[in-house]
Nucleic acid binder design. Structure first.
Lengths: 217, 217
DNA sequence: TAAATAAACAGGGAAAATCCCTTTGCCCCA
DNA sequence: TGGGGCAAAGGGATTTTCCCTGTTTATTTA
């Protein structure tokens, strides 16, 4: 670094203990200081319009109530494209990472990194405009692999509803009643999903749904 | 606080970003300062024997590789009972909280608290010797409720194995082969568990296992 | 040692899940 | 306008799950 600059950072995370702690840590980094924290996307919107100073960087959590990281990233890239958004999350699954990158984040960090990596990432973000960890690069490459690509998590509305209801103690007949469809249609959904996802039975479907965050425990 | 004392804290957490951040935060609290961090129980053991100064308080995460929070809490209460251990975890389920309290921790904090609550908890811990949040008190009361109590998560070795295998795509017949038991015995396990846990079918068992951390996704 | 207890195992039957194949109705478009 | 594609729905057979009721076997206890 030829000259000492002070870039500003905003942290968006609903876990206020983590956010406040991270704020202190980042303030010890020589080139960065935290402007403020926000509890979620909505909170961020309000604070951005209220505060007169715009941050250079936004550290964005994904799992948040009210307005989550996906919505927030989208809103940011549409309304404040000059702010560099860095996703900071526990989620390490391909779909989540890809989805965030598509929403325009400039990097994706896992929360279990070393503090110095965060410092590096912030610096690289300001110098080069992006930061891609090995994990993310791997994921990107992996997503191009046709083997994985066909296991597409692109579900129709009805399919998704069926999957979520299949993660309960309901029988298919009961699910059919709720979804206002014939049990045979439900059976069709089931059979099609089993083939596409290469699973053998309903337990496999439940595990798949949980692995891919299609439903909550 | 009549006089300003400086109590020492050690943080045990495998997420070094969180640990380092939290360290900075705690160092801003007037009565406390962090001695060092440890990545897990084993790391803590080494550092305790190496460093000459004992901490007053240990902030202990639960989910850690190598030596987790349960083992560590037990070791601490057996070998360093004078250190006050405060569990600090994301887990909010009754079983985990109770297990940690039984291992001798002096308090249980959820990671999604406000930073000021942590300050309060640390102060109260030194003044009174313990800190119990509302959440924990609720859980303690709840555990005394006979309605919940009979839903005991005390499983025999074979039952646990069966539950875990039931969370896969195997049929009961295949599970029987693996466990070297008759399919009828497996059916007996199943029937007994369904009755005890008040569940209707295998999906219910899978969801139960996941809710109670009996198996991983 | 006899009785009690609990785990392992079994028979039999109903319900649900799984599978394959076919039909119907609808929209699209070449 | 006549197929082609596709979601919805049905027929029917097999396997698996679920449930109730027992028997055998091993271990513990009185």
């Amino acid at each position: 670094m030829s000259q000492k600059e002070n870039y500003t950072v905003v942290i968006v995370d609903d876990h206020s203990l983590f956010a406040s702690s991270l704020e202190k840590l980042i303030n010890t980094f020589s080139n960065f200081r935290v402007l403020y924290n926000a509890k979620n996307g909505q909170d961020l919107q309000q604070k951005i319009s209220k505060e007169n100073k715009m941050p250079d960087i936004i550290l964005l959590d994904i799992n948040m109530p009210v307005m989550d990281g996906f919505e927030t990233a989208e809103w940011l890239s549409q309304n404040h494209a000059q702010i560099k958004t860095l996703a900071l999350s526990m989620e390490d699954d391909e779909q989540t990472i890809l989805q965030m990158l598509r929403k325009g984040v400039k990097g994706y960090l896992l929360k279990d990194i070393h503090p110095e990596i965060l410092n590096q990432a912030l610096n690289e973000l300001m110098e080069r405009g992006y930061y891609h960890s090995e994990k993310v690069s791997e994921t990107l490459l992996n997503s191009l692999n046709p083997n994985n690509h066909q296991k597409n998590l692109d579900f129709r509305e009805n399919e998704l509803t069926f999957i979520q209801l299949a993660c309960s103690e309901m029988t298919y007949k009961e699910i059919a009643v709720i979804m206002n469809l014939s049990p045979k249609t439900i059976d069709g959904y089931r059979q099609d999903l089993f083939k596409r996802l290469n699973i053998k039975n309903r337990v496999g479907l439940v595990m798949f749904a949980l692995k891919n965050n299609l439903t909550k425990i």
